[in-house]
C-alpha cells in the first residue's frame, strides 16, 4: 500500500488494518509520533491528516492511501513553526512525551482559527493529555501565537 507522509511517498507491505501510528514508528522511524493509549483518547499520536488533527493510533493504513499525512517531523524543517517557537519561549515541556501531539493539535487549531478564545483553546486541546500538567503553559503558548501574550498565565 502507498502513503504520503511529510511530502514523501512511501510504499509498505503492512496489513491494511495496521494503524498509521505503527507504520510511522516501526517502518518509517518517524518516532516523534507517540503511542500513549492506542484508543484515540490521549492525543500523543496526533498527526495532521489532510490538515485535520487525527489520532494515528486508530487510523488504519487502508484509510490513509489518498491523503496527506504530516507528522511533527514535517511540521517545519528546522523547528521554526510559530507554535514550536512559542512552545520554547514558554518552556512548555516537562517530560516532553505528549508535546509533539500537543503541538500538532495546537498548530491545527491556529491554522483554522488564528484568534482562538480561551474556550476554543480548551476545546481544541481537550483530546491531548499531559500527565506532567503543562496545560497552563500550553494555553499561554497558544495565546502568544495568537498575539495575546499579555493574557498568558
Amino acid at each position: 500500500m502507498k502513503l504520503k507522509v511529510n511530502g514523501r511517498s512511501y510504499e509498505t507491505e503492512a496489513d491494511a488494518d495496521t494503524p498509521l501510528l505503527w507504520i510511522l514508528r516501526d517502518e518509517l522511524k518517524l518516532t516523534g509520533t507517540r503511542y500513549g493509549c492506542g484508543d484515540a483518547i490521549c492525543g500523543a499520536c496526533t498527526v495532521h491528516f489532510n490538515g485535520v488533527p487525527t489520532r494515528a493510533c486508530r487510523l488504519p493504513l487502508s484509510a490513509v492511501a489518498d491523503g496527506e499525512v504530516t507528522t511533527i517531523e514535517g511540521l517545519s524543517a528546522d523547528g521554526s513553526h510559530p507554535v514550536q517557537e512559542a512552545w520554547r519561549r514558554h518552556n512548555v515541556p516537562q517530560c516532553g512525551f505528549c508535546q509533539a501531539g500537543q503541538i500538532m493539535s495546537a498548530s491545527a487549531l491556529l491554522a483554522g482559527n488564528a484568534q482562538p478564545t480561551d474556550d476554543d483553546i480548551d476545546s481544541a486541546m481537550s483530546g491531548n493529555i499531559c500527565r506532567c500538567g503543562t496545560y497552563p503553559r500550553i494555553r499561554a503558548a497558544i495565546r502568544d501565537v495568537a498575539g495575546r501574550g499579555e493574557d498568558a498565565s
Binding site: 516523534g32 514550536q84 520554547r88 515541556p93 516532553g96
Partner: peptide, 9 residues
C-alpha cells in the same frame, strides 16, 4: 532537550 522535544527528535 527543549529543541528535540518540540521537533519530535
Amino acid at each position: 532537550d527543549l529543541h528535540d522535544i518540540t521537533t519530535g527528535k
